[in-house]
Computed example of a mutant assay.
Amino acid sequence: MPQRRLVTSRSQEPRQRFAEELRRLRAQRGDTLRQLGDRLGWDYSLFGKMEKGETLGGPEVVQALDQYFGTPGMMLALWELASGDRTQFRERYRQYMALEAEATSLWHFAVSVLPGLLQTPGYAREVLAAGGLKGEALDQQVEARMGRRELLAGEDPPQFRTILSEAVLRTPLRGPTQWRQQLEYLLEAGEQGEVTVQVAPFCAGLHGLTNADVMFLRLPEGRTVAYAENGYRGELIEETTPVERLQRAYDSVRDLALTPAESRKFILRILEEVPCDPST
């Protein structure tokens, strides 16, 4: 029996198909590239490059597109096929990002790295490069991470609290200028009404969150979920008992942490210790 031919005008090459679907969805919505960029919080030129097949964008960008166009998971699946990397954006992290977008408040603990929501481009680039990314993939991930900061810059942002282990602030970037910019941005973010920054100093000793970053998401229906991440894997936790256990550990760390005012002074002292960049 002869093989059945696929009757469709759409490309079967993954990268072209991804670009075609993005053009089709935008046209169907009646948006210009600039309007799409304004509504999603990314530079409109990124979407132009994506529609031309010049770049695929990062997973956070594609997740935002799925939410905006009402195509849950479709664009992300095409993106995974086009990028050839099905491990980069695992199912549970997809779920986490969808929940993060609708959360009314977020509580975070950082054991070694600043949360993505408070990273500068220079910090994000060095952290992602240390994880092995380079070239176009690195550029895409940095741009996507910067786009995520829009979550705290909207008209009705969720409340966000982060408790930073002192180790986070004692691990500088290689470039003093970039590190100074990151610390200044952290101080600036802490002055926003919906953002609270605290530091858990070394003298606080061991505690229940010593080995992992944790983010708690308070959802509109009143339930709380958690996302715990170490250097090798992340896990979305939705069951009530383990979430409550992690919350108790978080509460104990918050009791040990410096107050927001004390934390600000602590960060200012570290900023004063940053050497001047000899190249400037």
Results as ranks from 00 to 15, higher is better:
208 G>Q: 03
139 D>A: 15
122 G>K: 12
126 E>N: 11
197 V>S: 08
129 A>K: 02
213 D>Y: 06
190 G>R: 12
179 W>C: 03
146 M>D: 06
192 Q>K: 15
128 L>K: 01
127 V>P: 01
162 T>V: 15
137 A>T: 07
183 L>Y: 06
172 P>S: 12
128 L>Y: 08
148 R>H: 06
183 L>F: 07
183 L>E: 05
167 A>R: 02
184 E>D: 11
122 G>T: 12
185 Y>H: 15
152 L>E: 14
190 G>H: 10
136 E>I: 10
127 V>F: 04
177 T>Q: 13
128 L>A: 10
164 L>C: 09
164 L>P: 01
209 L>Y: 01
173 L>A: 07
166 E>A: 01
133 L>C: 01
214 V>Q: 08
142 V>Q: 04
135 G>W: 10
149 R>V: 11
160 F>C: 12
214 V>P: 03
196 T>A: 04
131 G>R: 14
150 E>W: 07
132 G>H: 07
199 V>S: 07
167 A>E: 06
172 P>C: 13
130 A>M: 05
140 Q>C: 01
146 M>Y: 05
209 L>G: 01
209 L>R: 04
148 R>P: 01
210 T>A: 13
134 K>H: 15
121 P>T: 15
150 E>D: 11
161 R>C: 13
133 L>A: 05
165 S>W: 00
148 R>M: 06
129 A>R: 06
200 A>F: 00
196 T>D: 05
175 G>C: 07
176 P>D: 05
138 L>P: 08
205 G>C: 11
121 P>V: 15
144 A>E: 10
211 N>D: 14
150 E>Y: 04
123 Y>G: 01
149 R>D: 05
163 I>N: 02
177 T>V: 07
195 V>M: 02
130 A>E: 09
141 Q>F: 14
150 E>S: 11
200 A>W: 00
137 A>G: 05
180 R>I: 09
127 V>H: 02
197 V>I: 14
190 G>T: 09
131 G>Y: 11
193 G>T: 08
191 E>H: 14
202 F>A: 09
178 Q>A: 15
139 D>W: 04
157 P>Q: 03
175 G>T: 08
174 R>L: 12
133 L>D: 04
140 Q>I: 00
206 L>P: 04
142 V>I: 10
198 Q>G: 03
201 P>H: 11
159 Q>Y: 05
145 R>L: 12
194 E>A: 14
124 A>I: 08
204 A>G: 05
149 R>I: 09
151 L>F: 04
155 E>T: 09
206 L>S: 14
191 E>A: 15
188 E>A: 13
207 H>G: 14
190 G>E: 09
198 Q>L: 07
137 A>N: 06
186 L>D: 03
185 Y>F: 14
210 T>D: 12
128 L>Q: 06
200 A>Q: 07
154 G>N: 08
203 C>Y: 13
190 G>Y: 10
182 Q>G: 00
183 L>S: 02
193 G>V: 01
176 P>A: 09
191 E>C: 11
133 L>M: 09
204 A>M: 02
159 Q>N: 10
213 D>I: 00
213 D>Q: 10
166 E>S: 00
157 P>G: 05
125 R>P: 02
196 T>N: 03
205 G>K: 11
181 Q>F: 00
208 G>M: 06
202 F>W: 14
168 V>L: 11
168 V>N: 11
183 L>Q: 03
124 A>Q: 07
174 R>S: 12
194 E>I: 05
140 Q>K: 02
126 E>P: 04
124 A>W: 08
178 Q>N: 14
184 E>Q: 13
179 W>R: 07
166 E>Q: 05
